[in-house]
Amino acid sequence: MTGLVTGLAAEAPLTAGPGRRALGAARLLLSRPGLLVSVVVVLLALTAAFLPGLFTSGDPLAAAPARSLLPPGPGHPFGTDQLGRDLFTRVVYGAGPSLKVTVVAVAAGVVLGGLLGLVAGLAVRWLDDVIARVIEVLLAVPSLLLSLTLVTALGSGTVNVALAVGLANVAGFARIMRAEVLRVRTSAYVEAAEAFGARRHSVLLRHVLPNAYGPLLAVATLSTGTAVLAVAALGFLGYGAAPPAPEWGALVAQGRDYLSSAWWLTTMPGLTVAAVALAVNRIARAEGEWAGLR
């Protein structure tokens, strides 16, 4: 092993720093075409969420009865709906309500859950026990049921749906963070720092936090994929944006009535949701590969 380790180490470049890191990330991307496609898909979706005008010059609400229920073809890559509205334009404009708030909600969930987990991991025994029990109970409740309960209380609407989905994940984030903090806190290198007289806050900032947040980020990315699906499901059930506004789940629901005649109305927005969720999940997995490379 000694020979192997030194052999491996000798191959790697000696310089450290952000430049090498960027180079490593680029190399990782190029060696995994699936990952490259995923990054492109996510970037496109996010651009569509904030700047839909870049992709289409059409109006998502402009009806044209003469051109209703046209199948995908030139001019209408995703076809048109029963009112003649261009489906592609509607899907592009649907990215906003579907993604923007979701990302913010998950981020809020990560911060909240991360703090809760951190507190639990550092707190005295009884407080940790209490938080751990609450986390356990929340985790046993399916996240969709939690979201539904929150939607009932908050009322429907895009922001409320995203909030409901984000809050439903807090327990999951808290559990990961707590486990990581406990792992790092009992590690030999933290003990070593303490044995050398390091103060508590310094150990926390220099050793515990930097070593604990990595897995939380990986889980956060993974649950962003799930959150996109959950937001779409709630939109499909009719709790999201109000009817004329395009939202991916709602678009699928609207296409339900034309299931036998106009397949594209459900298929295209559904495929979009699946593609984004798949891409996000792939990126989440890559974080592990990236950490493994370092």
Partner: peptide, 30 residues
């Protein structure tokens, strides 16, 4: 400051995010 520790498993007792020089400088910083 007057008593130091060398652990059984050096890998576990060194913070994986620090370089060798940073690890050695840690007690000085403390």
């Amino acid at each position: 400051r007057r008593m130091a520790l060398v652990h059984q498993n050096p890998y576990a007792s060194l913070d994986p995010r620090f370089t060798a020089a940073e690890i050695v400088a840690e007690p000085l910083r403390i």
